[in-house]
Design a binder for these strands. Structure first.
Lengths: 206, 206
DNA sequence: GGTTTTGTGATACGAACGTACCACGAAGTT
DNA sequence: AACTTCGTGGTACGTTCGTATCACAAAACC
């Protein structure tokens, strides 16, 4: 029976099953058996490709981060067609809000991992948790470009602003996730803050 | 042996033990036996005062919310001595940042509960999770007062601003919690945003 | 072609968990 | 004084979980 199989591919399939089932039932409620069932393989196989649950979780986080990074990039690039850096900045921030199933799952699981990371050094060491975040650098750069194009109000510090906006987006995301706030209201808040940073469109063209 | 005992008091003691041990080891890792040990009582007693683990968790969340509310109120009122509404606003926002053990535990556990609430209707229905938040109303009111005193830049929408600031504070708090960011850097970000909302102090007095 | 590696299944094991049960002594009640 | 209620201890039960073990067939290798 054993055809030679691509380990990396198999691991990805299983980790995807992990993400799916954890998104549905919560990361805390997911066991090896659930992942196996969701992936349509035996428990043994999950053990075979990942030796331990911790390794599976770690890989799941990597996958999650990678997939979400791709999603955000795609959205930002798609917004690149629209003229002006604001469209890209908005795309970056809005992509992180839990507006559809995919981003909801992402927010949910990322927060779950963040909570686990508080007591788990191995998780805390993962780049996606630990890093000053590629997103912050990217957003800072976008803000700088807007600044050079004289699109921003004076007195804006690009780096601090980027950090604040991302934190706000994350915080709003959690609010949406737990049902405190609608996606529309979250994006209204974000929009208002962007309005206070960008100079008014009319004034610029006039 | 059985002296008559105050149930409410006992329940509080046990729930405090839950909060302590969960803050140390993570909510997901806490069992009834751990709570019993931490509270210095038998497993049976935890069962006696709370029939089920779910009820214990629910009560723990209530306690957490109540205690933290008191903390924030105390800080805000203490800042009331300093002239100007900005001090109070800053106190409100900074009190939520995980700068010491107490606020760290609060952030950690609140986030844990929020994650659980995604898949647990009983938790999601808890006021502290569900409500548009007393904090948002309070902050909105403070901003309105500042606005009437002509302390804010024009174009600020008090309610949207309040929501954004709270979300930012929460997001920054998570960053601090997982070690992405230092408390100092978080409060710098918050401070910068407040600076952009408040009119410059020099200009006001001059 | 024999042998080692590789992929897969089934199942067992020990620990931990939430909960339930049994027992008993001290207060309170009548 | 008899009886009921309340607080408490100890412990057992059934489940679930992560992991380990045994077994075996198809492929790869020499």
């Amino acid at each position: 029976m054993p055809k030679r199989v691509d380990h990396a591919e198999r691991r990805t399939e299983i980790a995807e099953a992990l993400v799916r089932v954890a998104g549905r039932r919560g990361l805390h409620a997911v066991g090896m058996r659930d992942v196996a069932a969701e992936a349509g393989v035996s428990l043994r196989l999950v053990q075979y490709y990942f030796q331990t649950k911790e390794k599976l979780l770690l890989f799941g986080l990597e996958l999650l981060a990678e997939r979400f990074g791709e999603r955000v990039s795609a959205r930002v690039q798609a917004a690149g067609d629209t003229p002006g850096p604001r469209a890209m900045i908005e795309a970056l921030l809005m992509a992180a809000l839990p507006t559809d199933d995919e981003s909801r799952t992402f927010h949910h699981l990322y927060t779950s991992y963040a909570v686990l990371a508080v007591n788990d050094p191995a998780l805390a060491a993962q780049p996606f948790i630990k890093n000053p975040d590629a997103a912050e650098d990217a957003l800072t750069e976008l803000l700088r470009q807007a600044q050079e194009a004289a699109l921003l109000e004076p007195g804006v510090d690009a780096r601090l602003e980027a950090a604040g906006l991302l934190a706000m987006s994350a915080g709003l995301g959690t609010g949406v996730l737990v049902g405190q706030r609608s996606p529309e209201s979250a994006s209204a808040v974000l929009g208002h803050h962007l309005n206070r940073i960008f100079r008014t469109g009319d004034a610029v063209s006039g």
